[in-house]
């Protein structure tokens, strides 16, 4: 009866990345340095996690230019949003089933 937890999201760092991106409005993108500051991660570390999320199709990475400087924007895809929603639902279900028998005993 244990709900499956999405292994892509079920890791501290990636969960924080996805939770942060999920608070942005649908259709919004955040710069890579902006996201890095919000998470307090190193650029290298964040890159690794973002490419894993991109492989899963959860995150969209857009490389563009502002004037001559290259800028990278990151956003959650619809699939990523759905996966995060599914993950939080699964976590809540797990917590509910864990609590239910304990409350019956008392």
């Amino acid at each position: 009866m244990t709900p499956e937890l999405d292994p892509v999201i079920h890791a501290q760092a990636r969960l924080r990345v996805v939770a942060t991106l999920n608070t942005l409005a649908d259709g919004d993108q955040i710069t890579f340095p902006g996201l890095k500051d919000l998470l307090g991660m190193t650029a290298g570390n964040l890159s690794v996690h973002l490419s894993k999320l991109e492989e899963a199709g959860y995150v969209e990475i857009v490389k563009t230019h502002r004037g001559r400087t290259p800028v990278t924007y990151v956003a959650l895809t619809h699939r990523g949003r759905a996966a995060f929603e599914g993950y939080t639902t699964a976590i809540r279900e797990l917590l509910d089933t864990a609590r239910a028998p304990a409350s019956e005993e008392t």
Partner: peptide, 9 residues
């Protein structure tokens, strides 16, 4: 200087 662009902007 907000790092966010897109719909909300």
């Amino acid at each position: 200087g907000s790092p966010v662009r897109g719909a909300s902007q």
